[in-house]
Simulated assay, not measured.
Amino acid sequence: MQMTLTIAIHMSTAITAVLLGPVALWARLGRTTRPRLHRALGYAWVTCMITAALSAIFIRDFQLPNAMGYTPIHLLIPLTFFSLYRAFVYLLQGNIQGHRKTMQWLYVSACLVAGAFTLVPGRYLGNLIWSN
């Protein structure tokens, strides 16, 4: 597999989401809440997550265990869309706790866990990092 425009878009939005996530979450924690910062970074993070999930649909790998080029990590695509939908439904219902937990869970699962799996040797990014 080589770097394509789709992979570049996916990687840049995913890395941006990994970096924005903690700041967006932090803006609502502690004594001083920063609702404008939280909302602005939250929308930017959601945009990155949607773009990363959409671009992932077009990234297929026939070398790893797969079904029609889709590997198990692709299961995060519908999970991401459902979680984002659910988080906004919670927000519209005024269920801030549900919104918070959903977004925190999505950050950990789709950004941190999935990000860690991309570093495994045999995957594109893992090969870039660990190969001599």
Rank of each mutant, 00 (worst) to 15 (best):
I96F: 07
S131E: 15
P35M: 14
A8Q: 13
A110V: 03
I96A: 12
Y85V: 07
P35T: 14
V120P: 03
F117W: 13
L25F: 13
V108Y: 02
P22N: 09
P78G: 09
W105L: 11
F58A: 15
I50M: 06
V89S: 08
A14I: 08
R28W: 08
L128T: 06
T51A: 14
L54E: 02
P35G: 12
V18M: 14
P65A: 13
T16S: 15
R28F: 06
M11Y: 09
G98P: 04
L112P: 05
L125N: 01
W26Q: 11
M11I: 15
I7V: 13
L91H: 09
P121G: 06
C111L: 12
S109L: 12
I73D: 05
M1R: 06
G69K: 14
I9K: 09
I15Q: 05
F82T: 08
V113W: 10
R31I: 08
A24H: 04
A44K: 02
I129R: 03
Q97P: 02
V108A: 04
T32L: 13
V23Y: 09
L92A: 15
Q2V: 13
S12M: 15
N66C: 14
F62Y: 15
T16D: 03
H10K: 00
I59H: 03
L19K: 01
W45L: 15
S83E: 06
F81I: 08
H38T: 10
C48M: 12
Q63C: 00
A116T: 12
V89Q: 11
R31A: 10
I57A: 07
F81M: 07
L128G: 08
T102N: 00
A27G: 07
L92Y: 14
R60H: 09
L64Y: 01
L64P: 02
T6G: 05
T33K: 14
C48Y: 05
G94R: 00
A67C: 09
I50E: 01
A24S: 13
F82D: 01
